[in-house]
Structures are given as structure tokens and as C-alpha cells.
């Protein structure tokens, strides 16, 4: 997928985009459908996301994350912008007050793929309870206290399951820090 996206960014390769589209559009649609009660809204946001993927493809850098992560962040941001009336404050790497990372990020496609593979493996080992929480945290509009209410567990348990899940994932990636 990263090769497809790089080809789209470099050569405006419409065939590559068609392949990417057919793979991701149904996934982005499914993600947005979980957040939106309105199917039409999910459909429109999905289309907007995929057009943004085409338009921004030259900005994709393998070093900054894999394709699905990049597409997730585009869909998420478009959704916040569309459905929240308020602003979406974000840090700006070009700001002179921004503190750059002294640790160089993964710089090759191979490294990125290996890391994605390790992450996938680690996610498969998470207990269902923790996975369910991650799904609710990322793929529903619920805040953590809403999740606690929905699952009928204390908010502290929600927090500790999220913490546990991520400390396992971090350990699996042998964080370079």
C-alpha cells in the first residue's frame, strides 16, 4: 500500500489510486459509520477523506507512519472539523517554539513495515477486554466516562485497561528512547 501511495504522490497514478481506493474506501466508511448515526454523512465524509488522500498524497512520508495510520488521521481530522463547531488546536512542527525530536524517526519503508508487523502481532496478543476498550475509545464517539457507563465498569478500570494495553504495545515495539 505504501508503494501505491508513493506512486500516487509522485506520478499522480490514477490506477494506483483506484487500487488504494477499493481497499480503503470500505474501511474508512466502516470507521465513519461507527461514529455517525447518519449513513449519508458517513458516506460523504468517506468521499471527502479519499479525495483528500489523492490531493495530499505527495505529503505522505513513510517515515511519518504507515498508510492506514495516515488515512486514519485524515478521516479523523475531517470528521472533527465537520462535526465540531469549535476549533481543532494542533501543534505545528514549523513553529519556532516547537521542540524537535532529538531521536531520528524510522526512516525506511522496510523499518516501517517491520514495525507495523510487530504492532499487529502485539495487538493479537492483547486480551479481548483491552481490545474492546481500544475499539470503543477510537471507533466510537464515546468519552472514557461514557465507555465506563456503557460497560458498567468504573472509570478507573477504563483508564487502567488503556494504560495496560498501550504499555504492552510499547514494550512490543521496544520503544527507542
Amino acid at each position: 500500500m505504501a508503494e501505491l501511495l508513493l506512486a500516487i504522490g509522485r506520478d499522480r497514478d490514477i490506477q494506483a489510486f483506484e487500487l488504494l481506493f477499493k481497499y480503503y474506501a470500505p474501511r474508512v466508511k466502516a470507521y465513519l459509520a461507527r461514529l455517525e448515526r447518519d449513513n449519508q454523512a458517513a458516506e460523504e465524509l468517506m468521499q471527502e477523506t479519499m479525495i483528500a488522500v489523492w490531493n495530499k498524497s505527495a505529503q505522505f512520508e513513510t517515515a511519518r507512519g504507515n498508510v492506514s495510520t495516515w488515512i486514519f488521521t485524515i478521516a479523523r481530522n475531517l470528521r472533527i472539523d465537520a462535526y465540531r463547531k469549535n476549533r481543532r488546536p494542533d501543534f505545528d512542527p514549523d513553529d519556532p517554539a516547537f521542540v524537535p525530536d532529538p531521536v531520528p524517526s524510522a526512516d525506511s519503508l522496510v523499518q516501517e513495515l517491520q514495525e507495523a508487523e510487530r504492532l499487529r502481532g502485539a495487538m493479537e496478543t492483547l486480551p479481548e477486554q483491552q481490545l474492546q476498550l481500544l475499539r470503543l475509545a477510537f471507533f466510537s464517539e464515546r468519552t472514557h466516562s461514557d465507555i465506563a457507563d456503557a460497560l458498567n465498569i468504573p472509570i478507573g478500570t477504563v483508564k487502567s485497561r488503556i494504560r495496560l494495553a498501550f504499555s504492552k504495545l510499547r514494550a512490543a515495539l521496544e520503544e527507542r528512547s
Partner: peptide, 19 residues
């Protein structure tokens, strides 16, 4: 970045919905 990668992986694994 790890949190976003995890979300990206969940996007890979989601049950697709035909547009």
C-alpha cells in the same frame, strides 16, 4: 504516534462496509 498507529491497524482490521 503509537496510539495513531494502533488506530491505523484497527482501521486495517475493521469489517469493511461497501460504499
Amino acid at each position: 504516534a503509537l496510539f495513531e498507529k494502533t488506530a491505523g491497524q484497527m482501521l486495517e482490521d475493521i469489517q469493511p462496509e461497501a460504499p
